[in-house]
Design a protein around this nucleic acid. Structure first.
Lengths: 306, 306
DNA sequence: GAAATAGATAAGATCACCTTATCTTTCGGA
DNA sequence: TCCGAAAGATAAGGTGATCTTATCTATTTC
């Protein structure tokens, strides 16, 4: 890392640019206005670039100054926040979790309360992000993704899920006589990001069944969550991911409608950037999340043909 | 803002904690190891909290140190990045645009190349985020959202869109005789975040038509983009937002299938946090984006009954 | 136009920061 | 087991970045 310019000077510049006046910056930093003026001049000399236009004893930000201000403001605000946390009697650990949007909405937000309950005070933020996320510009402690993106950070495959045909118990009888032929199919639109997820067409191929148009009949839902709800309501057979339907299977709200399953092409992966790896809460959440995923996937996989 | 501790001391702590040794930190900062030791001790005294355990001339991070390290690393990295940009001969302005995921994928990413082409070198990142986004923790320059969230930042309503029944020109003849009764309807699943968007049921109510079950027949798509594609393919009539279908209407790929339209409940809003408002590129993008939105919405609204 | 305000500059003070030197403890070979 | 190398703490003292006070000029405000 190349040597930084005077941090104090940058701080003075940030305060002056943000408040719009050297005098206000001086007050904020509890130093004299002359000191602010000198600090800023020092930075300008070190950087070889004007940050303020000096028009007749009046300071107006240059374009360079305007462009850099927000970034410095964010950086110094973060440092100030760290200082406040350190100075307080006790601080709440912070945990930033990023998962695909489909997981953030239902599955994980339902379960995460259990983690919170068992881990006391912490500021947890759960975000739904599409891949790729930027570990460089955002402070993400742990990222769950479908498939191994992020080879440049420590990444582990945690589980490979599969999809299963599931339906309400009341519909299950019909599958004995003629397979799935008589039941409406619930199609899940995975959306633009999930184009590689298996469809009913793929499933019928795997099962060795000739389908013609049959694989297209039925309802459709715009999320795996919605598809499951339709299936639980008894409206048809959904092709559901194990991790999402495990709970409903355990509760008896759903049953498997056929033994054939279909593995997903990619495993779920967990990425923890080096900077966050040593933190207790990150490690604890990692353990917990892997446990939840493995449990859900394996409990849903009992007694199927992969 | 309360006075920060020694910035130089925090920098020394960050380097030492990240590299794992005072000696390495000293090398990185081009100072002596003794200086690092003293700087860190100074910060510990100012904060009233140990950052390293000193076990027999060996330094091991405390829990507080481990927790704070990633945040400081990010902050100092950003400062370093600012310094590099400032020191270089020319810097590329950075622009972080956040819009709802549905807009990030199709509509905006198609058009934004025109903005890029007319604005030269810039590092633009276009992100699809659900509301609410955090202006406090993320450096977002401009946010487009459906409805006025973010009252705490300068926000302007830019346009109120409506939905229109649209279909391929080849289907349009059928609407003369019996309205929409004989055409398949394409339903758009707005997903969990767009629950307040109008449905075909709402549209028929507004048109004063008794529908019974008719409003439920037809296909469905999981995104407005997919619904439009189905309509263009001639598979039915979609209820499309003006902003999304304007281009297809202009190109003649779609025509309006009925005059009745339905206004969205919320306007589209643009939020620009104070810190970014003065930047040229932000202002330019704001102008451009408002123009694109207004143009798309108004061109799609020609000759309809609101 | 006078007073108040904002910034620049000069000169000198001081304190934060840095170095060198020395000591202790640990660790990795031979 | 012993030795040398490496890591960190501490002391003493140097130096330069940072800060203050004082003074000056231009601008804004009443």
């Amino acid at each position: 890392m190349v040597a930084l310019p005077s941090l104090r000077g940058l701080q003075a510049f940030e305060a002056a640019a943000r408040t719009g006046s050297f005098a206000a910056a001086a007050e904020e930093l509890s130093i004299s206005a002359a000191a602010v003026s000198q600090l800023i001049r020092t930075v300008e000399e070190q950087m070889g670039r004007q940050l303020f236009h000096r028009i007749n004893r009046r300071a107006v930000l240059t374009e360079a100054g305007v462009e850099m201000l927000p970034r410095l403001t964010m950086a110094f605000r973060e440092i100030g926040s760290v200082a406040r946390d350190l100075g307080g009697d006790a601080f709440r650990p912070r945990l930033v979790i990023s998962v695909p949007p489909s997981m953030a909405m239902g599955w994980l937000s339902e379960r995460i309360v259990r983690f919170v309950a068992s881990h006391g005070a912490a500021d947890i933020s759960l975000r739904g992000d599409d891949d790729p996320v930027s570990f460089d510009h955002e402070l993400i402690d742990i990222r769950l993704s479908y498939g191994p993106h992020y080879r440049e950070h420590p990444t582990e495959e945690i589980v490979r899920d599969a999809v299963y045909p599931v339906c309400a118990p009341t519909l299950a009888g019909a599958t004995r006589s003629d397979g799935l032929a008589s039941l409406p199919l619930i199609h899940t639109d995975w959306g633009p990001t999930g184009a590689s997820f298996p469809s009913w067409r793929n499933w019928f191929e795997a099962a060795g069944v000739e389908t013609g148009r049959a694989a297209q009949r039925g309802l459709s839902a715009n999320s795996s969550r919605a598809a499951l709800d339709l299936a639980i309501s008894g409206l048809g057979v959904a092709l559901a991911q194990g991790i999402y339907c495990a709970q409903a299977l355990e509760d008896g709200k759903l049953v498997r409608a056929a033994a054939q399953s279909l593995e997903l092409r990619q495993p779920y992966c967990l990425t923890i950037p080096e900077r966050s790896a040593r933190r207790d809460i990150v490690g604890a959440f990692r353990e917990w999340l892997i446990g939840e995923c493995v449990h859900a996937v394996s409990s849903s996989a009992l007694g199927t043909n992969k």
